[in-house]
Amino acid sequence: MRIVIYISRAKHRFTARDLADLRDVAAARNRSLNITGLLLFDGTRFVQALEGDAAAVQLVMDRIANDSRHDNISYFKPIETDHRQFNWWSTEYRDENDLCDGGGFLDRVMKHVADVKCDSIKAAFIGFAALSLRRRLTT
């Protein structure tokens, strides 16, 4: 089993509808390939972990690499493992409610990764959410 994590920048502003459509299509596609993981969006950047059979993960990564909705893709070193870190596939994004309660996004992300055993994966997602909050507070 392979785990791939990447971070990228959105090329345009995403509406709540855009994000819901992205979530629904990705969830259906990932289910069909037995891929689990987590996708976060902070209003500017995406970070995603995909895990499953190496060939299936590569198929999804190839599609993502050619997706015109984002650019500046950076990849973490792939992880080979015998067991899943995520038993589901989920999405989370910072929304307008987080503008009043900035910690909400971070709190939700921490719940999503609470059962993740790999500390580097957990740190990547918590760090992403924390930096997102910090950027919001300083801009």
Rank of each mutant, 00 (worst) to 15 (best):
R136V: 13
G127H: 07
F128E: 05
F128R: 03
N97W: 13
G127V: 02
E96Y: 12
S132P: 09
V113A: 01
T81S: 10
H112N: 08
N97M: 12
R136P: 15
N87G: 05
G127W: 04
A130P: 07
H112T: 03
H83I: 08
E80C: 08
I121N: 01
R84Q: 03
L106S: 14
D119L: 04
T81V: 06
F76N: 03
E96W: 01
N97A: 13
D82E: 11
I126N: 00
V113R: 03
R108G: 05
R84Y: 02
C100G: 14
R134K: 14
C118H: 12
A129Q: 07
L106C: 13
A129R: 07
L131Y: 12
C100L: 13
K77Q: 13
Y93D: 08
D98Q: 06
D119P: 08
E92C: 11
N97Y: 11
Q85M: 07
V113G: 03
T91N: 11
R136G: 15
W89Q: 02
C100N: 14
R108L: 03
G127C: 07
Y75W: 08
V116T: 02
S74F: 02
A123Y: 03
F105K: 03
P78D: 07
V116L: 04
A114E: 13
N87S: 04
K117C: 08
F86W: 02
D119H: 04
H70F: 01
G102W: 09
Q85V: 00
F86D: 00
L131E: 15
F76C: 06
D101L: 13
F86P: 00
H70C: 04
I79S: 09
K77T: 13
I121K: 02
F128L: 03
Q85D: 05
F105S: 12
L99H: 08
V109R: 01
A114G: 10
